[in-house]
Amino acid sequence: MKQLDGFGKFLETLRGKMSLREAAHKSGLSHAYIRDLELERNRSTNEKIKPSPVTLKKLSDAYNYSYTELMEKAGYLEKEEMNHSSVEVDIAQILFIEVSAKEVTYQFQHSKISQNVHSLVDFSDFLDQLEEKGFKKMDTDLFVNLHHVMKYIEKEGTLYFDQPGIGKHVVIAASKQKKYHDLLLRCIARNTGNSLEYHLDRNGSIDSMRSTLKQSF
């Protein structure tokens, strides 16, 4: 399905009398980016832009408008697909989730599942579940399950899902490193069964030194 002609103008209409800064505060997006979306172009590069499903979810919440309808108008959902069920996945077993404009990829320890965004009719509910299941947004379209993080190389911003730090991993945004630094340490201590006392090894990764941690996050 193609994006609604004049979709940017439609977003501006949804914002109504709300100022750009108020919309930014409610959505968590920058006021400049919201205006770019309304103009359907990046004013710095003059390139055409399209909001991702994650961005649409934020705008849906900020403007109190149906997420499903917004996805439809943005060209992600067909009306006839509304009754299709999505592939069921065990959220607890997912290491991390990557969301692109066209699909969502669930990464497991030994496999991955990619699902077309068109079939995610309950995508809004799905995103709402992530926080309560231990996920944190670690980059624009990256959600990490903190229950599975086993090692953190701080200087690289790399999270590993195995203690040796040689297997699957993701690189998180610098702003998220700063925001979730202490939480990451607590989670790794809990996941590995070690204490919160750490030292930096030669690679700059954070390793535990002492007894079992009894607190949970």
Rank of each mutant, 00 (worst) to 15 (best):
M1D: 05
M1T: 07
Q3P: 04
L4N: 00
G8R: 03
R15Q: 01
L20V: 10
S27R: 01
G28K: 01
D36C: 07
L37W: 03
L39F: 04
P51L: 01
S60Q: 05
D61S: 07
Y65A: 07
S66W: 07
Y67T: 05
T68H: 02
T68V: 04
K73W: 02
E80F: 06
A92Q: 09
Q93I: 07
A101N: 06
T105V: 14
H110A: 13
H110W: 08
N116L: 06
S119R: 15
S124L: 05
D125L: 08
L127G: 03
G134K: 05
G134P: 02
T140W: 10
D141Y: 05
L142K: 01
H147Q: 11
V149K: 01
Y152H: 02
Y152N: 00
E156A: 07
G157V: 07
G157D: 05
D162R: 07
D162G: 10
P164F: 14
G165P: 02
G165N: 03
H169N: 10
H169I: 09
I172A: 06
A173Y: 00
K176E: 11
K178R: 10
L185Y: 10
A189N: 00
A189S: 14
N191Q: 08
T192C: 14
E197T: 06
Y198C: 12
L200H: 05
D201N: 15
I206F: 13
M209Y: 12
S211G: 11
L213S: 15
K214D: 05
